[in-house]
């Protein structure tokens, strides 16, 4: 993609330079040739249509290939992905780990090297989920499920956030994204399970109230199919959790 950028930048610089050069060279106070009736040239036409068309043909091919190669819905190679379900709330994120049976607020942990499939939905206005250090963004919408496949290759801590304006607490709607080595990830799960309370209708109703900059919170137990039921509550259907078949 860097070559594509270079190609365009070269053309743009040529155009800017030529525009400024022509503007100076053919100034009225200058002595340059004046051909007031010259208004067509087949050779120039071929170049002016041809060069942009050629660049776009090259870029277009690249777009086709890269869009498929980097499709956020495409599972990443490697071990079977860890599934994390993310629910956007006003103005925080709830993460559910169905395999581990835990849930967290405003903190998500990823085991280093293992692909992760995020399944996204929203309880509120449209959000856009992004961990800039790991990849791009995908919208989260109520009653619908979208997906994003990511993988952390090095351990570290970064910030994820909602990118789509969704009301008063939007600016502070961030979460911590922890990329942890296998063992530390397991410890983190254990910590969440042991220190957390239960995620259920009552605690979820409390959590759903609009709030800004919530502290990290853990839920040690999560009802089965909680995520699918939240989508169904808004009239939608979830692809069945844990199963990567559909698309």
């Amino acid at each position: 993609m860097l070559q594509a950028f270079g190609l365009m930048l070269a053309l743009v610089l040529v155009v800017i330079a030529a525009t400024l050069f022509f503007a100076w060279r053919y100034r009225a106070t200058g002595k340059a040739l004046h051909q007031p009736d010259w208004d067509r040239s087949l050779a120039v036409e071929i170049v002016t249509w041809g060069i942009p068309a050629l660049i776009i043909a090259i870029l277009g091919t690249m777009v086709w290939n890269k869009t498929h190669a980097l499709d956020p819905y495409k599972p990443l190679p490697g071990a079977p992905p860890l599934v994390v379900q993310a629910i956007a709330l006003d103005w925080k994120w709830l993460f559910i780990y169905p395999e581990q049976g835990i849930a967290t607020v405003n903190e998500v942990a990823l085991p280093v090297g293992r692909p992760v499939t995020f399944r996204l939905t929203s309880e509120v206005a449209m959000n856009s989920f992004m961990i800039p250090a790991l990849g791009g963004q995908i919208y989260a919408m109520a009653g619908m499920e979208t997906r994003l496949n990511l993988r952390a290759d090095t351990p570290g801590r970064s910030e994820g956030r909602n990118m789509q304006f969704s009301g008063g607490g939007f600016a502070a709607q961030t979460f911590a994204a922890l990329a942890l080595p296998e063992q530390e990830f397991d410890d983190w799960v254990t910590k969440a399970r042991s220190t957390g309370t239960a995620l259920n209708a009552a605690s979820f109703a409390k959590l759903s109230k609009p709030s800004v900059a919530d502290p990290v919170r853990y839920y040690g137990t999560v009802p089965v199919d909680f995520f699918a039921k939240r989508i169904a509550a808004h009239g939608g259907m979830s692809h069945h959790s844990g199963n990567e078949a559909g698309h």
Binding site: M62, K66, T67, A69, P72, M130, P132, Q137, M163
Partner: peptide, 11 residues
């Protein structure tokens, strides 16, 4: 207009 770039620069 390049979707993989747009995923990061959108919004």
């Amino acid at each position: 207009a390049i979707p993989p770039i747009n995923y990061s620069t959108h919004n």
